[in-house]
């Protein structure tokens, strides 16, 4: 008795705005509730229309085709290769890479406290896996003025992120790059990278993002500092 079997014309009118994502979240939720109550025929008609609109817009996408930068391809393929290799069949080459990078990082970690750990060859879902699988995954990428690119893929739900640095020139002898998670209450070290760690690319897992809203990179003397003292070479907003 609560369900109407007469297709609601208002519902079908909303199929195009729905398919084009031209509803607010509240309007979409309300519409989906009405659809759930509307019965199968009304649903089939509605979703057929949605499907046709989406197929049409997929064809229309040819009109705006534009190439992204080559860097995007590299970042994606390296994220996916790491993800795949680690979870299914860790190769010797990759394990070696982890260990040398881990060794390079270890100095920094001992000095400044653990903020970064290279992802372990884990059996259970690693932090990186969890970040990639998070429903709130975000990517922020920026050029480092001295050269190279830093990309952070992160999730607030997981309170963690994965940093990928590509083609970053090594720090001057006697210095390291140090990463800082910066919040309104100050900066916390997220680890350091020396010349060995940055070339040609490196990946690090950032944990305990907390309330930080920036990832800052500075040049620090020796094996790192407890608070940022050196020149800021880059900053990525974690929002």
């Amino acid at each position: 008795m609560t369900q109407s079997h007469v297709p609601d014309p208002d519902l079908l009118d909303l199929a195009v705005p729905y398919a084009l994502h031209a509803l607010s979240d509240a309007e979409r939720d309300a519409l989906e509730s009405r659809l759930t109550a509307a019965g199968r025929t009304a649903n089939d008609t509605f979703y057929d229309e949605v499907r046709a609109v989406r197929e049409t817009m997929a064809v229309v996408s040819a009109a705006n085709a534009e190439e992204p930068s080559a860097g995007l391809r590299e970042r994606l393929l390296s994220a996916v290769a790491d993800d795949n290799v680690r979870s299914l069949r860790p190769s010797k080459r990759l394990r070696t890479a982890w260990m040398s990078a881990a060794a390079a990082l270890a100095i920094g970690l001992i000095t400044v406290g653990i903020g970064v750990s290279l992802r372990p060859p884990a059996q259970a879902p690693s932090t990186a896996d969890q970040v990639f699988a998070a429903s709130d995954v975000h990517t922020i990428s920026g050029a480092i003025p001295a050269g190279g690119t830093a990309t952070v893929v992160f999730s607030r739900d997981r309170d963690a992120g994965v940093l990928v640095m590509n083609d970053v020139p090594p720090p001057a002898p006697g210095t390291v790059y140090q990463m800082w998670l910066v919040s309104d209450s100050g900066a916390t070290s997220a680890g350091t990278m020396d010349a060995m760690a940055v070339a040609p690319s490196t990946t690090a897992v950032l944990t305990n993002l907390g309330s930080s809203n920036k990832l800052r990179f500075t040049v620090e003397p020796g094996s790192g500092s407890t608070q940022p003292t050196g020149q800021v070479i880059a900053e990525l907003p974690l929002v």
Partner: peptide
């Protein structure tokens, strides 16, 4: 698919940096 996806995203966002980030998120998804 990248030129279609990126082209559509860039048409919506009108900013190269945002568009690359969003495209990256799309393919990770």
């Amino acid at each position: 698919t990248r030129s279609r996806v990126y082209g559509m995203v860039a048409r919506v966002l009108r900013d190269r940096g945002y568009s690359e980030e969003t495209t990256q998120d799309v393919y990770l998804q």
